[in-house]
Amino acid sequence: MTSTRALRAHLLAAGLAGTVRNQREASLRAYRLFAARDPRLTLGLDPEHEWSPAGVLALMADKCGVPADPALVAGHDVIDPERTLGALRVFAERLGETAARRGAVLLGTGHPHHLLGFYAGLADALSAAGCVVLTPAQGQCVDITTRFGVRTCHLDYVRGVALVREPGARSIRSETGAHTHSPLPVRMALQALSRSGGPLPELVIGDHGWVCGAGQLGFDAIGLADTDDPAPFVGEAERSIAVAVPLDDSVRSSYYAPLTRYVLNRACLSQ
């Protein structure tokens, strides 16, 4: 069991909250690009309202605790650990509610090198609670636009968590996949479920395009997001995404293990 006090200390010590790796300049640039509706930053979300860079910054200050002063343009970003803890509590509530109904769930990540273990722990616990952990469109190809051009990847699952693999990657269950912000994988997965006539997810858990793409399509979606990814927080503000947890999404993978224990304990899913 991980107490709230212990987790708060861990968030700060591991750089998950407090002063984080993201550079202020990069985050402000991301807010400008999101306001311009650059698809690299909207992550599959189609915002209901118009968002100015100043409006995005104000939202991120409220949701994450980043400095609200637009004149501050250098240095590292900051995440308020209390906001992280508050969002994790709501995240756990949604998890527990779904588990109590034994609802079908879909999990996916665009950050497998860092976050796969976090989501896999949730998938294991949800499966043990009687939830169906969905794995649609296994092995199907998806064309994803990157800064290097269009790359054809394929959808794979590791311990019930979806990820994409780049061309030439060996299909070994223990290895991680490619980093992506694209909503196309979750759209493919959901389309495959619809065509098969099987159960649709009552909850989608993920990050980047997984949480934004699912939320945009009307699915209950919860996930993790960093200070340079405003889309999940905009989605939460507009109520297309249920929960966006602010934290650094690219620290060492083992640093997320206490978060898994904390969430599962609060959701009454500890094994």
Results as ranks from 00 to 15, higher is better:
residue 1 M to V: 15
residue 1 M to W: 09
residue 1 M to F: 12
residue 4 T to D: 13
residue 7 L to M: 08
residue 12 L to I: 14
residue 13 A to V: 09
residue 15 G to K: 06
residue 16 L to H: 03
residue 25 E to A: 12
residue 28 L to S: 00
residue 33 L to D: 06
residue 33 L to F: 01
residue 38 D to A: 03
residue 38 D to W: 00
residue 39 P to H: 09
residue 44 G to F: 04
residue 46 D to E: 15
residue 48 E to H: 10
residue 48 E to N: 10
residue 48 E to G: 13
residue 52 S to Q: 07
residue 54 A to D: 14
residue 56 V to C: 08
residue 58 A to M: 10
residue 62 D to Q: 14
residue 63 K to C: 08
residue 64 C to A: 14
residue 65 G to S: 08
residue 67 P to I: 08
residue 69 D to M: 08
residue 74 A to T: 13
residue 78 V to C: 08
residue 82 E to S: 15
residue 82 E to W: 11
residue 83 R to D: 08
residue 83 R to T: 11
residue 88 L to M: 08
residue 91 F to I: 06
residue 93 E to K: 07
residue 93 E to T: 12
residue 94 R to M: 13
residue 97 E to A: 15
residue 100 A to K: 01
residue 103 G to K: 01
residue 104 A to H: 10
residue 104 A to V: 11
residue 106 L to A: 09
residue 111 H to Y: 07
residue 114 H to F: 06
residue 116 L to C: 05
residue 118 F to C: 06
residue 119 Y to R: 02
residue 124 D to S: 15
residue 125 A to H: 02
residue 126 L to W: 03
residue 126 L to F: 03
residue 129 A to W: 00
residue 131 C to D: 02
residue 132 V to A: 14
residue 133 V to D: 02
residue 133 V to P: 00
residue 135 T to F: 05
residue 138 Q to M: 12
residue 138 Q to S: 14
residue 138 Q to W: 08
residue 140 Q to V: 14
residue 145 T to P: 04
residue 149 G to P: 03
residue 151 R to L: 12
residue 153 C to W: 02
residue 154 H to Y: 15
residue 154 H to C: 14
residue 158 V to S: 15
residue 159 R to N: 12
residue 161 V to R: 00
residue 165 R to S: 08
residue 166 E to C: 06
residue 167 P to C: 07
residue 167 P to D: 05
residue 168 G to C: 12
residue 169 A to L: 12
residue 169 A to S: 15
residue 172 I to D: 13
residue 174 S to F: 12
residue 176 T to V: 09
residue 177 G to V: 01
residue 180 T to Q: 05
residue 180 T to C: 06
residue 180 T to D: 00
residue 182 S to I: 01
residue 184 L to I: 13
residue 187 R to I: 13
residue 188 M to Q: 12
residue 190 L to Y: 00
residue 190 L to G: 02
residue 191 Q to A: 15
residue 193 L to W: 06
residue 193 L to S: 10
residue 196 S to M: 09
residue 198 G to N: 10
residue 198 G to A: 13
residue 198 G to M: 11
residue 206 G to N: 05
residue 207 D to W: 00
residue 210 W to Y: 11
residue 211 V to C: 00
residue 212 C to D: 00
residue 216 Q to P: 02
residue 218 G to E: 07
residue 221 A to G: 09
residue 222 I to N: 04
residue 223 G to S: 07
residue 227 T to A: 13
residue 227 T to D: 05
residue 230 P to N: 07
residue 232 P to F: 04
residue 233 F to V: 07
residue 236 E to K: 03
residue 236 E to S: 10
residue 237 A to N: 10
residue 238 E to T: 11
residue 238 E to C: 11
residue 239 R to F: 14
residue 241 I to H: 01
residue 242 A to D: 10
residue 244 A to Q: 04
residue 246 P to T: 06
residue 247 L to W: 01
residue 250 S to V: 10
residue 258 P to H: 04
residue 258 P to Y: 05
residue 261 R to H: 13
residue 264 L to M: 07
